[in-house]
Design a protein around this nucleic acid. Structure first.
Lengths: 323, 323
DNA sequence: GTGGTTCGTGTAAACGGTTTCATCTGGTAT
DNA sequence: ATACCAGATGAAACCGTTTACACGAACCAC
């Protein structure tokens, strides 16, 4: 029996007589034969591997994204080759990534400065960019609608707090989401007829400590009681809430807080944290779907989808008595 | 110039005249040449890819593990091919994983039942198992010392609480870590001269809700006040603390709580959660180190290393006044 | 019986590199 | 001038698979 027949028996059994297929299967089991994926890939130019480049692998957000992507990839018979690109500032966004092994690339970007999308497009590898929406670009993008989410959060804050007592405490300037949320916050106040003062918007880092530090300073100045804050993410919001509690402010009666991301922590802190939900699960799965679609229709025009975000109301932003 | 010369110029420049190397480099830049990794792998049998199989990609613990592994791998010029194996109960622990592409495998196991280590060893791919210590086995293992950590946690609980009022609330039976921690808890009480009653050890799930449910039931029975609890992980501990707080118990005065894992949440809940620290960072990095060592010395006898855990004391288990 | 069709199988040419071995060059010792 | 050697390069084999093509056998219709 020739090598060719074996190859056909394994890949296209319908081209081979049933008896031969059976003989091959038996031999494979017996010998523990496993096809060499390099030889296969060399010829077929397919590895069923999808490269994933994230700013950072750590944290609930990215971790959930990875899981949903992995689940979807697994369903479709693909595997994920991951790398974080945050610490590799000197390299391409694909991370010096020797991942020419991958059939396609999912790149998540969170920093404006590192957005070297042209370089990515130049790889002419099927690519999906997650986290950035730039309709003009020649690659598929999937992002989520920070604006709507932030606006409904502000609307909720305004239900019980005057516009000049609302604050946004975000991540650092240059972070795409933080910037979008910050802009949406200001815009929402403007639509309410209030031009936000400069100190109503603050920028720091996506971390508890920053929220804590900001709130502590505000407390020192006696400006936090009766305010309402939208955190750039849940960690910041929790940091703020903790500082307030540590100084005897009760939430939501004396300070109302909303976070962003709706991570699993929201339900576990007390009071439970209201937050803007991002459909992270859909994000990961959709990214994989988009890559696969591009495998199948390489020349279709790039799609730019934007996933909706929704406000989840919990205790930390409640107006009036508990319910 | 022949293909062979180009190959040498790129891989072993010292074998080629400097002028030629320069010419090649220039041509590479100009043409955007990128070596085909499949062809390369076919011949060299090396891909610089390490497969990582985790029970679940999600959660702070795994996410931190992944990051430290990725960081270390990146330093050494390797990449990570990940897959979770939890949902693939029907397949091999390597996950049907078409990752014959990988040079080696890091497999993390948390469930006793899924420990089909023989099957992994049969792949005769360099392998490191994380999370299980079974000295007899023919593969390297890296695990962490649940016993010491749990024992020092119990010792701390006993500083202010009688042994019959100490509880362990773990994950489900069959989870390796939970079982080890549970056994260590009981053993620690015994060494203190107290045979633990059956209800001093409970098993559920690694989730807030389980901790909350357990504590709520205990409260209903009026048995939680004055107790001290070691949670199987931080989530469970936080769930317990939340339930206690929701029912007006103050922590640590009326209930002392310690978690396990020392995740980033410990510092963000109030009161701050004492917890047994697991050196997750070392775990990931060491796993990669171990794999690389095995690449270099394929026939060295298997190593079994066990990383120390340490109790981090915070407010939730404090005895006496705040400090 | 001949020619065409179909089906199953074998042959051999890729795929894109690495590596062994041979060749060529120029310099140096004798 | 000859022999020798080292360093730089080229020719060709090889890695394990897929696949285009050729081939032979069995079947059918005329």
């Amino acid at each position: 029996m020739s090598i060719a027949t074996v190859s056909r028996a394994l890949n296209t059994p319908e081209m081979v007589s049933p008896a031969t297929v059976e003989r091959v299967r038996q031999a494979v089991d017996e010998l523990g034969y496993r096809p060499n994926l390099f030889a296969k890939g060399l010829l077929t130019r397919r590895s069923r591997v999808i490269g994933v480049s994230l700013p950072d692998i750590h944290g609930l957000f990215f971790s959930e994204l990875m899981r949903s992507a992995d689940d979807r990839a697994c369903e479709l018979g693909y595997h994920l080759l991951v790398s974080s690109n945050a610490h590799r500032a000197d390299e391409t966004p694909t991370g010096g990534f020797a991942l020419d092994l991958a059939d396609g690339l999912i790149v998540m970007l969170t920093e404006r400065s590192r957005v070297d999308l042209e370089a990515i497009a130049a790889l002419n590898l099927p690519t999906v960019v997650v986290g950035v929406d730039r309709p003009g670009l020649a690659v598929d993008t999937i992002s989520f609608d920070n604006v709507t989410g932030a606006m409904s959060a502000v609307a909720h804050l305004l239900e019980g707090t005057p516009p000049d007592r609302c604050y946004f405490v975000g991540g650092h300037v240059g972070n795409i989401d933080s910037d979008e949320r910050s802009a949406a916050f200001s815009e929402a106040l403007r639509r309410d007829g209030h031009e936000p003062a400069p100190d109503q918007v603050a920028h720091g880092e996506y971390h508890f400590d920053w929220g804590w530090a900001w709130a502590t300073e505000m407390l020192r100045q006696g400006r936090l009681r009766g305010a309402a804050v939208l955190g750039g993410n849940d960690e910041i919001a929790i940091g703020i809430a903790n500082a307030a509690r540590d100084h005897g402010l009760s939430i939501p009666e004396e300070l109302r807080v909303i976070g962003f991301d709706d991570s699993s922590m929201c339900d576990c802190v007390r009071p439970k944290l209201s937050s803007v939900r991002i459909p992270v699960n859909d994000l990961g799965a959709e990214a994989v779907n988009a890559i696969i679609r591009r495998f199948e229709q390489p020349d279709s025009s790039p799609r730019h989808s934007r996933l909706a975000t929704t406000l989840v109301r919990r205790d930390s932003s409640r107006v009036g008595p508990a319910g």
